[in-house]
Amino acid sequence: MARVVVDVMLKPEILDPQGQAVQRALPRLGFEGIADVRQGKRFELEVEGPVDAAALRRIHELAETFLANTVIEDFTVRVEEPAVSEEAPA
């Protein structure tokens, strides 16, 4: 089964207090040098059948109407290639 990943992020101009809280906690935990953190959501959709243009159109539609609130969020849709090995180096 093919996997399609939808990433949803708050738009850059929308305040992300959760990301800020994470960023502020980092120095206390000894992690230095992280200037900013934005927190988002990742959806992994296991798609039945081929992931063709029509299927991707439907997924784009469901992301736009349901997974993301486009008033405050942006989203991306991508097909995840079947992994031969975990995290192959680029």
């Binding site: 708050l10 305040l15 207090p17 609130n69 008033v71």
Partner: peptide, 17 residues
């Protein structure tokens, strides 16, 4: 109502969390 688009805008996490 905002999610239904009967009203514009959205409600987000309180700025102080």
């Amino acid at each position: 109502l905002c999610e239904s688009h009967l009203l514009p805008g959205a409600l987000t996490r309180n700025d102080h969390l």
